[in-house]
Amino acid sequence: MKITGDQQLIKKMNKGIVLDTIRQMQPLSRADISAAIGLNKATVSSLVAELIDSQLVTEIGPGESSGGRKPTLLLFNKQAGYAVGVDIRVHDLLVVIVDLEGHIIREQSTPLADYTTESVTNQIKSTISKICVDLPATPYGVIGIGIGVPGLVDETQQVVSAPNLGWNNFDLAGHLQQELALPIYIDNEANAGAIGEKLYGAGLHTSDLVYLSIGVGIGSGIVVGGQLYRGTSNFSGEVGHMTIAENGPLCRCGNHGCWETLASEKALLDQAAAIWGEQVSTIEEVLAKVEEGNSQAVTLLNEIGTQLGIGLANLVNILNPEMIVIGNRLSLAGKQLEQAMLHSIKNRSLSYHRKKTQVEFAKLGIRSTALGAASMPITAFLADSDVSVQAEA
């Protein structure tokens, strides 16, 4: 009998559901899967057999009996392949290689001194080539590359604007594809960070969260119902340009008093340099002064925490999210910022709105974006449940 397109599509969808159920609930038996998703046992057994043949699922031995023969338990094979995640930051490039469950296998950070598209593209190619050398063999090898970019990325994955890099209308994926010959996925770094924390970090058990990437600027990734909210042009999340102080500092966007001029890593370092009359290059330098008991450093961090809290109170009032996660470089000062930040949120947000909103610092630290970027090729790969063994790493 000829199999219709509709039947093929249903089978593919069901296989994806079975695979996702194993990933989420492992270890479990075929009977457990049938009970969980409502497919009959014969259909589940057939789909599981195909997943075992494709080496995405493995059998690990018998489980506990409920009265009859002991069931065979199944696991998702996280070692079936690797994904690469890239976080393009203003001062450096972070590249990670992860297994199919997002566990870091290798990582490398490389300084960036030249931000031209050619230089950064070459650095990405070089770093990926180096970090992928002599990886342990897997059925599928490296399945793809995800990249987080500090700027606006449209629905075609074109980098429309990355002001801190000086980029405009750049086809990053196209330039990399020619040499790397792998599927490439591009997104805004805050969106990637939001997905990283949702899948692997602080937001693992939440459906609605706002991830704040606070470095030179402030961007956000907004997750609603487990999915990224992208806005009508794919450009949602530019919360760093909320006006916090009408007559505040001039922002690079041309406005005055934007949130990122008062509560970003750059704001902290600029104010630190003004206080001490010398260039301050990293948050770590300010934190070292706190450890030494420098009262000016403590006061400065309290002020940044207060300004951070003002913007957060606005987000609490407007979005009423389940969770807000603060990531990127400023999260390194979380312990020193927290008290003033929470005090500011409490004083400025509506009590009913903030009652159920958790505010956390990124569980993944400065790796949120890289891990979220790596998840993009993993999601695409696993969505194609008809994959077959093709290569070795």
Results as ranks from 00 to 15, higher is better:
Gln279Glu: 10
Arg23Gly: 04
Thr58Asn: 08
Val90Cys: 02
Ala373Cys: 01
Val239Leu: 01
Ala383Asn: 13
Gly203Asn: 02
Thr110Met: 12
Leu342Ser: 03
Gly151Cys: 04
Leu300Pro: 09
Asn314Gly: 06
Asn122Tyr: 13
Asp384Ile: 00
Ala36Ser: 15
Glu118Gly: 11
Ser375His: 14
Ala42Gln: 08
Ala245Leu: 15
Lys335Asn: 09
Tyr200Ser: 01
Lys363Gly: 10
Asn168Glu: 13
Pro111Asn: 02
Val86Trp: 12
Gln279Ala: 13
Asn169Val: 15
Pro27Gly: 05
Val216Leu: 09
Leu342Asp: 06
Leu182Tyr: 11
Tyr352Gln: 10
Ile283Asn: 02
Leu330Gly: 10
Thr117Ile: 06
Ala333His: 10
Lys266Tyr: 12
Val18Pro: 05
Asp154Trp: 05
Gly237Ala: 01
Arg329Val: 11
Ser264Leu: 07
Gly193Arg: 02
Val223Ala: 02
Arg106Tyr: 05
Ile283Lys: 03
Glu118Leu: 12
Ser207Ala: 10
Leu199Glu: 12
Leu262Ile: 10
Thr299Tyr: 10
Ala263Thr: 06
His256Val: 08
Leu100Gln: 03
Ser331Glu: 12
Val325Glu: 00
Leu382Trp: 11
Trp259Thr: 06
Ile131Asn: 11
Trp276Gln: 07
Thr261His: 01
Val239Ala: 01
Ile60Gln: 04
Ile37Ser: 09
Ile88Asn: 08
Lys11Thr: 09
Arg354Leu: 09
Phe170Trp: 15
Pro150His: 13
Leu152Asn: 07
Asn247Cys: 08
His256Leu: 08
Glu246Cys: 06
Ser66Asp: 14
Thr306Lys: 12
Ser126Trp: 07
Ser349Arg: 05
Gly102Leu: 06
Lys2Ser: 10
Ala80Glu: 07
Val149His: 09
